[in-house]
């Protein structure tokens, strides 16, 4: 099977020793989008949320203070760079490393917030992300055991799919779903987004969605239905 039926023709390959990055229009677009959003986060200030006060008709502002802002911005930029890396890597294990980094940094971005509901939701998301690392790495290891390689460009050349490869990819998908906190695994991740700090919340959401889209490509590379 040729990888070009998935994302378009391969535009280029960057071999960094064993770890190979490949660019198809699909990967390049997501890579560029992740970097563009990261650059936007690096230059933006945060908003102040307007909330009603009890007892008067006035409004009050909920802001992000300076120390919290710098810390969360740093974590958001790391998350953005990890997402960009996950989009172009041609190495299954490299991808799983990026996904776990994204999971950890996502929790860090909201861990500095001082709202109890948000911290509760972040804590539960953290538990699920930790549980998700087992199937994530286990699935990648099973694919390595079944195929003998973790390079996606080599896996795509294998003309058949064994049942162990299919099982490994199911575990891998469960791991990604846990790490990125998608419904139905963690439907109240949305509660984490009620806090101020809009640019930082963007990268939490963006990283999860882009990682899922890339995971679909990887699953189609590993499993060949015909």
């Amino acid at each position: 099977m040729d990888i070009s039926i998935l994302g378009g023709p391969i535009l280029g390959i960057i071999p960094l020793g064993d770890i190979v990055l490949y660019f198809t229009p699909f990967n390049l677009f997501m890579f560029a989008a992740a970097l563009a959003f990261t650059a936007l986060i690096a230059i933006s200030s945060t908003e102040s949320q307007v909330e009603a006060e009890f007892g008067t008709l006035k409004n009050r502002e909920v802001k992000v203070d300076k120390a919290e802002f710098k810390l969360r911005r740093f974590l958001a930029i790391v998350c953005g760079l990890a997402t960009a890396g996950a989009m172009v890597t041609g190495d299954l294990f490299d991808f799983t490393l990026f996904v776990t980094l994204i999971g950890i940094v996502n929790i860090g971005i909201v861990a500095a917030v001082k709202e109890i509901d948000v911290l509760d939701a972040a804590f539960q998301y953290g538990l699920i992300a930790m549980i998700g690392t087992l199937p994530l790495f286990g699935g990648a290891a099973l694919v390595l055991a079944a195929t003998g390689t973790i390079s996606l460009l080599q896996i795509v050349q294998i003309p058949y799919t064994t049942s162990l490869m299919a099982f490994g990819s199911i575990l891998f998908f469960l791991g990604v779903a846990g790490e990125t906190g998608v419904a139905p695994f963690f439907a109240t991740k949305a509660e984490m987004f009620r806090t101020p700090g809009s640019p930082f919340l963007l990268i939490i959401h963006l990283s999860s969605l882009l990682v899922i889209v890339r995971t679909i490509e990887i699953l189609l590379i590993i499993n060949k239905p015909f």
Binding site: L6, G8, T24, F29, A33, L209, I212
Partner: peptide, 13 residues
């Protein structure tokens, strides 16, 4: 007339 997967990425963004 490129890849449909790209369209999924656009919808996600």
């Amino acid at each position: 007339e490129g890849s449909l997967l790209l369209f999924f990425a656009i919808y996600a963004i």
